[in-house]
Design a protein around this nucleic acid. Sequence first.
DNA 1: CGGAATCCTCTACGATACTG
DNA 2: CAGTATCGTAGAGGATTCCG
Lengths: 114, 114
Amino acid sequence: MKKSVHTDCSSAMLPVRDAIDVISGKWKLLILISISSGNHRFTEIQKSIPKITAKVLSNELKDLEQNKLIERKIIEGYPVMIEYNTSSYAETLGDVIKALRDWGINHRKKITGK
Amino acid sequence: MKKSVHTDCSSAMLPVRDAIDVISGKWKLLILISISSGNHRFTEIQKSIPKITAKVLSNELKDLEQNKLIERKIIEGYPVMIEYNTSSYAETLGDVIKALRDWGINHRKKITGK
DNA sequence: CGGAATCCTCTACGATACTG
DNA sequence: CAGTATCGTAGAGGATTCCG
C-alpha cells in the first residue's frame, strides 16, 4: 500500500465543509442575527439588513427553514401575518457567530490600523 | 425624529459581515486547515482538498496572502520551490474554525440521525 | 513543479415590477 | 404585508491546455 505524499486532513476539513455548506453566503448568519435580535416579520428583517432584496431574503428564509434553523408561523387574521423565529437548534450556532464577530472586530482593527 | 420600526442590530451584524467577507467561499478555511496540517507545497495542498482545481487554489492563495493569512516563500534551487505557511495572524482564526468544526460535527449527527 | 491562459457554466445575487 | 415573477449580471468555480 502506497503512502500518500500529502498530509491527510480530511477529518478536520469535513465538518468545516459541512458547516460552510449550511451557512454559506453573505446573508444567512445576518438573517439569524436579525431575527434573534427581535425582528420577526419579513419586512422588519428586510429593513434591518442593508441591501438585501425581497427575493434574496425570501430564498434564504426558505433555506434556513429547510435546515431547521428558523420556524415560519402563520398568524391568522386580517391580514394574515407571518412570523419568523429562530429555532432552539439555531442557538447551537451561537459559538460560531460569536467567534466570527470577535474575529471580525479584531480584523477591522487590524486593517483600519485601529 | 422618527423611531424605526425594526430592531437595529447593525452593530451585531457588522463584524460578522466583515469576517464573512474575508473567509467566504468554499475554500479559504479548508486551505488554511490543510496548510496548518502540514501541507506546504502547492501540489500537496491541491491533493489534500478534494475537487479543488489549480486555478481556484491559485486564486485563493493570492487572496489569503493579501489578507496576511498566509505567507509565500520562494526557495531557490533546482527547481525553485514554493512554500506556503500560515501566518501568526491566521492563528487568530482558530476559534472560528473550531466553532465551525464543532457545529459541523453536531449538524451531521443531526441530519444523518447520528 | 507551480502555476497562467483560455473558455465555459452555473448560481448567487441584484433591480424592478407586480400580486393576493 | 409578504412575498412572486422576470430579467439581468458578476463572479465563483470548473475543464482543459499550455508554459518556464
